[in-house]
């Protein structure tokens, strides 16, 4: 068993888990943050994407102990209280989700994408960088629209980084 400590959504947390526990299971089972999902066993579907020290990672591909000491943001931590962040808003306005299961991972991946590309983000880049996120419901059409709309509203990469 290992003792794990990290900052999750701005809150310092710690817990005990088996050495083999994946970060996604630590988030779901120890911290009860069930918005991060598991959709495959091979790091392909992206339902488990969270931000680790500001970058999108697949939380099924990292041990909880490896994330110890890091700053983790999950889908539960990106809204500002009742105010949705621009990517969440764009998903709602463009009907970028249906069953909602892949949605947290999609939003975390696209937020990272916009953090890097800002308003320069284009359709080709969105589709290419969504390679690691699978959606079975939407045909991606409205997810792409949501990503581009959110990018246009979130501004330049520098502005985003400064926030």
């Amino acid at each position: 068993m290992s003792q794990v400590s990290m900052t999750v959504n701005g809150r310092k947390v710690s817990g005990e888990c088996e050495d083999r526990t994946l970060l996604v299971h630590f988030l779901r089972d120890n911290l009860h943050l069930t918005g991060t999902h598991v959709g495959c066993d091979t790091s392909q579907c992206g339902a488990c994407v969270v931000h680790l020290d500001g970058k999108a990672i697949k939380s099924c591909t990292m041990l909880a102990v490896q994330a110890s000491g890091s700053d983790v943001t999950t889908i539960e931590g990106i809204a500002n209280g009742q105010d949705l962040n621009p990517v969440q808003t764009a998903f709602k306005e463009h009907h970028g989700l249906q069953c909602g299961f892949c949605t947290p991972g999609m939003i975390m991946t696209i937020t990272d994408m916009i953090n890097r590309h800002g308003s320069d983000l284009d359709e080709e880049t969105v589709r290419e960088e969504l390679d690691g996120n699978i959606c079975r419901c939407t045909g991606y059409h409205n997810i792409v629209k949501a990503a581009l709309d959110a990018a246009s509203k979130m501004g330049t990469p520098q502005q985003v980084a400064a926030e």
Binding site: T34, A79, Q88, K92, L97, G100, T103
Partner: peptide
Amino acid sequence: DRRFITGQG
């Protein structure tokens, strides 16, 4: 949508 985009599904 709100519960799904905030991780509360």
